[in-house]
Design a protein around this nucleic acid. Structure first.
Lengths: 191, 191
DNA sequence: CTTATCTGAATCATACCTGTTGCAATTCGA
DNA sequence: TCGAATTGCAACAGGTATGATTCAGATAAG
């Protein structure tokens, strides 16, 4: 259990798994120490059912991280990082990522075991991110001497900060615009 | 117990309190759920001694947060935020803060109760921060239309990111320089 | 419809953490 | 030096989380 993709779960079982993962995210983001009992209750499921699907707490957490990472990767992909004009791609990706991250904040902040599926996906995503930044650099949007890894980290930090501070109601596109603008120009006076 | 300043603790008792707080920071930053037993062991102290000084886990955490917040406030103050030239103050404060934050990462990331001493201090510090930014704005270092609260949040995020990613060995002044540069100019091409 | 699967409920055993107390030994401080 | 404060140790009580097991009933699937 707790594997990447259980082979052909019955429909109701699959529904249970989803409910459990969503409830876990909802509770753990508020209270990282929440008990399996509480998670089960929030999922509208018996505690035994969780143990049937996930061998232990650890397995549940890992499944949560994998599931969220997969959605995040999809969000990035949907922004066409390889084909869209860099600035457009950055905007779209940022807006998409903001939405996924606001829904799976706990799972995506989790310190991942380097061998886990989640970690692999996160590395893929970081690679994609660097790719986009390189394309932006080629378009003179980013200084040619810039350290792209630092730029990527700043980008991540801006996203995180946007999520922490602003009410969920805020328009993702507006937030994305502010992030990109800050990333490229900082706070200094405009030319 | 667990008060802001215990009145005249005996020398050995004060040493114990310090050892406990330092051990708590050291362990909790790695494992937020570490038991009192583990903390006591790391502090070279019996578990009962912790309970003598701090009524319960909560009280220990709050004392930890207060202690760290006080040190952070001191670090900011040492940068002369009101009198030094804005750019100098920003550099000095950033370097000082980096050092304190790397030593008390757990305590300073703690979600503080709005009424706690730590929260009050954090608000004071944020105020000081805004003050410096205003002075920088008056000196044309920051765009006159900039949202200073957002700038402050970005500044915090850059500090956090610097701490997470870079080995502790890195030179605080170099990190501070990069933070300020990124805050003011972003990643875009230089004029 | 019939079967294989899934679920909830009830139990059980185990382990761990927390907070308290009593006491003897040690250490600080005046 | 003498008394008070502090500490370690041991033990205890109360609580809670975890995981496993069993079984009868509900539900999806072919």
């Amino acid at each position: 259990m707790g594997e990447t993709a259980a082979r052909s779960l019955r429909a109701d079982a699959e529904r249970s798994v989803r409910a459990i993962l969503e409830a876990a995210e909802r509770l753990l983001v508020e209270e990282p120490g929440a008990s399996m009992e509480q998670i089960a209750a929030a999922a509208g499921v018996a505690r035994t059912t969780i143990h049937r699907r996930f061998a232990n707490r650890q397995a549940l957490i890992e499944a949560l991280a994998s599931s969220a990472a997969r959605q995040l990767a999809q969000a990035v992909e949907d922004g066409r990082p390889d084909t869209a004009p860099p600035l457009v791609a950055m905007h779209r990706i940022t807006a998409n990522v903001l939405q996924v991250k606001s829904a799976w904040a706990f799972a995506l902040e989790l310190p991942a075991d380097p061998d886990s599926e989640a970690a692999v996906l996160q590395r893929d995503i970081a690679g994609r991110c660097i790719t986009v930044l390189k394309r932006a650099q080629a378009d003179k949007l980013i200084d040619e001497a810039a350290d792209l890894d630092w730029v990527r980290r700043v980008y991540y930090a801006l996203i995180r900060e946007s999520l922490h501070g602003d009410a969920d109601g805020a328009d993702p596109d507006a937030l994305a615009a502010r992030i990109i603008d800050t990333l490229l120009h900082g706070a200094g006076p405009r030319a």
